[in-house]
Design a protein around this nucleic acid. Structure first.
Length: 580
RNA sequence: CGGGGUGUAGCGCAGUUUGGUUAGCGCACCUGCCUUGGGAGCAGGGGGUCGGUGGUUCAAAUCCACUCACCCCGACCA
């Protein structure tokens, strides 16, 4: 592509709507432009990147035996009523009406549609297994779109759905996808990690998220410094050093105006570890739960939701607390005042002999309380978030660290959950009706592209990994009016096109500074600078974007071979997973 | 949805508190000269219903009401 014939418009100034580097650079480099909140246009450069990522995904999915289809983006409401999600999916589901006032949705995901297709055609175990995937624009009416392509409302996703006859076979399908995902993110040049994930409302057996490591990531993950254990903080567990403390007599004490754990413990001269704090939530059905965790622990709402079988938990307001008969600041498990509320204790509390707890009475607490001696609860569960420095549950030696990541992919074993609900059945060897064992596998294409920028940039701009760069090579001619130089550039440009090297040729009549700065911003990995001084000596400068000050002077006749070699070297580097 | 904030040229902003010339600046864009290895310089030029609607006033970017859009912090997701 010749720069002067392209549609590349760069901006000098930072964009105020961008809160993170990658968003700013994509806007400044002319990759994307915003149309509305969470809705972006992909300009020529941006689309090139999207296509590169998509093609890597496509190649690896095909290699894993998956079959590409393209499902309708607009889906009839009936399907969603059948699955029950017309009601359950909530406001994120964009609902639209046609001219006859019939209800449709713009698909946020395609379980319903794919199941509808599969139901229609696959009726025998002989058809199994198979995996159908697509790369398509989705729409989810997010509460808070942000960070450009990271969390758009309209976004491009690869979604795949596997269908198997039994659990073992499903496990194999899952592992194939897992391997494909490793290949995809490796080839995209990302430093990533797969982590154990919560299966959330989708349910099912196993689930892993693929996280691109970045301090601006919206997810927090827990990793072991000694073994490969890594898990989303929503799910992570740990081994904690447990000091039971001495057994004491239960005693009710006055704690005037001491409502927070900190205040109470300071007042009673107790360690916060030896206290239980109450957190009261209601779920989507309005059922109320009271959770007790140690004073210095953080309640993990995802774990709490799982322990109660809830989809969503919301903290009670002060008025709701009062209405439920609870005394804010003094809620405790002894003589719990409301029998309709389920009381759940974190399992760590079982180890403590001596706890400070609320007395369910204004200005009073108990001290010396012990679970199973002084009080009981309805359920014991793991409710707390892992803290940094705790011991790894897997190797039992390493220390855990909390780091941040961007979720670019997620794989699930769904099991029978959907097939049963949606009546997706086949006949097994014995002629018996069975539901499919399903798996589902997503990758955010735009998010992956932007995550690559977030991970690979410097103060001048983007540093694309060659596999997803809009162009592999950029030629900058510093003096477009010089006939000898220009015709040389034209020649190597044509030669590269002939060799199928993707090349951007900046032949604009602009000053050197403008061209060089644009080149840095756009971030093409290999660059050829043709300037007067070196050209007089029959040389041109070649450098890599990532080490742009390390320039090699190459003989003008050797340039093509040198570039071809460099290019191969950069691709070869992507064969190994980056250490994270 | 709760909390905070912003809407003035393609982008970044000033002007609004205290209403009053023809609404300004930098970048970008167009013309010419000049310059040419890291975002030059000079001269000239184009581009705005000041987010929208209604109101107050002799007079509104500026005051009032309503409304829309967007951004940031929280709970959800690829």
């Amino acid at each position: 592509m010749r720069y002067s014939q392209s549609f590349i418009y760069t901006l000098k100034e930072d964009q105020k709507e961008a809160a993170i580097i990658s968003h700013n650079l994509l806007l400044r480099g002319g990759f994307i432009s915003k149309l509305a909140s969470g809705i972006y246009n992909y300009l020529p450069l941006g689309l090139k990147v999207i296509k590169k990522v998509s093609n890597i995904v496509r190649e690896e999915m095909d290699a894993a035996g998956a079959l590409e289809i393209l499902m309708a983006a607009i889906q009839p409401a009936e399907l969603w009523m059948e699955s029950g999600r017309w009601n359950d999916y909530g406001k994120e589901l964009l609902r639209i009406k046609d001219r006859k006032e019939s209800d449709f949705v713009f698909g946020p995901t395609h379980e319903e549609v794919v199941t509808d297709i599969v139901k229609k055609y696959a009726k025998s175990y002989k058809d199994l297994p198979f995996n159908l995937y697509q790369i398509q624009t989705k729409f989810r009416d997010e509460l808070r779109p942000r960070f450009g392509l990271m969390r758009g409302r309209e976004f491009i996703m690869k979604d795949a759905y596997s269908f198997d006859a039994d659990e073992d076979s499903m496990d194999i399908s899952y592992l194939k996808m897992r391997e494909a995902y490793y290949n995809i993110f490796r080839r995209c040049g990302l430093a990533f990690r797969s982590v154990e994930a919560d299966t959330g409302s989708i349910g099912g057996k196993d689930s892993e998220e693929f996280m691109v490591l970045s301090s601006t990531g919206e997810d927090e993950i827990v990793v072991c410094d000694a073994c490969e254990y890594s898990a989303n903080v929503e799910r992570a567990e740990s081994i904690t050093e447990d000091d039971a403390g001495s057994e004491e007599k239960l005693e009710k004490v006055e704690t005037p105006n001491k409502q927070t754990i900190k205040n109470v413990c300071e007042f009673l001269n107790a360690d916060e570890k030896f206290s239980a704090k109450a957190l009261v939530y209601k779920n989507e059905e309005g059922k109320i739960f009271c959770f007790f965790v140690e004073g210095d622990d953080e309640l993990n709402e995802i774990k709490a939701a799982r322990a109660t079988g809830s989809v969503e938990l919301e903290m009670l307001s002060d008025e709701e607390l009062k209405k439920a008969g609870l005394t804010k600041g003094y809620i405790g498990p002894i003589n719990f005042p409301n029998k309709d509320i389920e009381v759940i204790c974190d399992k760590r509390l079982e180890n403590r002999n001596n706890l400070v707890v609320g007395a369910n009475e204004e200005n009073y607490h108990y001290k010396g309380a012990k679970l199973h001696r002084d009080f009981e609860c309805d359920k014991i569960a793991d409710l707390r978030s892992v803290k940094e420095g705790e011991v790894c549950p897997k190797c039992e030696k390493g220390k855990l660290k909390r780091i941040r990541g961007i979720e670019v992919g997620h794989i699930f074993k769904l099991g029978l959950k959907y097939s049963q609900a949606m009546n997706a059945l086949f006949l097994d060897k014995n002629g018996k009706t069975q539901p499919f064992y399903m798996g589902c596998y997503g990758i955010g294409i735009g998010r992956t592209a932007q995550a690559a920028v977030e991970q690979n940039n410097d103060e001048k701009g983007i540093i694309w990994p060659i596999s997803i760069a809009p162009f592999e090579v950029e030629i900058v001619s510093l003096d477009s009016k010089d006939i000898a130089m220009s015709s040389y550039c034209d020649m190597i440009y044509d030669d590269m096109i002939y060799r199928e090297i993707e090349v951007l040729y900046d032949e604009r009549d602009e000053r050197a500074g403008i061209k060089l700065n644009d080149m840095d911003l756009i971030g093409i990995p290999i660059r050829i600078v043709v300037g007067k001084k070196s050209f007089q000596n029959n040389k041109v400068e070649i450098s890599l974007r990532r080490e742009k000050d390390k320039k090699e002077l190459i003989d003008i006749d050797a340039v093509l071979d040198y570039i071809t070699e460099l290019r191969e070297k950069l691709y070869a580097e992507l064969e190994t997973i980056r250490e994270v």
